[in-house]
Write a protein that binds this DNA or RNA. Structure first.
Lengths: 137, 137
DNA sequence: TAGCTTATTGCGAAAAATTTGCAATAAGGA
DNA sequence: TCCTTATTGCAAATTTTTCGCAATAAGCTA
């Protein structure tokens, strides 16, 4: 169960599992596409204060629960690889649809090559594509 | 000359070449790494008003003169491929250094494959890597 | 289960970032 | 050099994000 992992992570760090955190986590989990902070503030405004949203998003990021992706004009937040399988995005600049796709072995190899070439220890990477989807072009 | 291209682009769109725009463009051109909007506001505050910076960065983006890259916590602005050769970034999460690198043929092939698979017409892509640089690890 | 400790929340307000209206200025074509 | 109008600076409004603090509630302990 994905929620269990979240709960464990919190307690391991002496952090409390509050209904607010659960709400935010679920909001992210249930979203088919990354959300802006503003999206999250609005979606939860019935029960959560904006400061709670901000504080917890910072926390989530620190804990590695979420990461920010930059699709389009503003960055957005989504669950990170530990909670959702690693993937990348294609953003249609016409209709705004976001398509997720998984990376190829070739890309992984390529990253490995780059890592060696620059003696750079890669911990994370993001690949974001923009263009027009099949419907729009 | 790279500046010429910029000038031509402006006049083609019935936009005027002002000293403020030139200043902003040069600030971007001369920077070895992408800049945050705030960086630009501060760097030019001796002669440019913040609203001028914001308005022109929007314009630059629309014209395709710049694009936003997401390295680290906030997004940054840099000249786009037409004005600076296409490249990607590695950000050291320890010391903050940004290393540029050029993409491989393999990556291009891979993008092409993805494009076909999803019938997605790719106009742009970004690959951002984080980790630790050779000095820090 | 009740009590205790303290992490977390909501609230209100402050600070920072971004946008806007408008009069004054200056780019660039005639 | 003149004229038209895009662009700027200024000041103020909005929007976004942060912060201090008292009230609340999570979760450990007895």
């Amino acid at each position: 169960m994905i929620g269990e992992k979240f709960k464990t992570l919190l307690s391991k760090n002496n952090l409390r599992l509050t209904s607010e955190r659960m709400r935010l986590f679920n909001e992210l989990k249930d979203s088919p596409a990354p959300l802006t902070i503003n999206n999250l503030v609005k979606r939860t405004s019935d029960t959560l204060d904006q400061s709670t949203v901000y504080r917890n998003l910072d926390l989530f990021e620190e804990l590695g629960v979420t990461h920010r992706v930059y699709t389009g004009w503003k960055y957005k937040v989504e669950l990170s690889d530990s909670f959702k399988s690693h993937h990348h995005h294609m953003l249609c600049s016409n209709c705004g649809v976001v398509i997720e796709f998984h990376e190829s072995k070739e890309l992984i190899k390529d990253l490995d090559r780059i890592s060696k070439k620059y003696s750079f220890n890669i911990s994370n990477h993001s690949l974001e594509i923009t263009g027009t989807c099949s419907n729009c072009s």
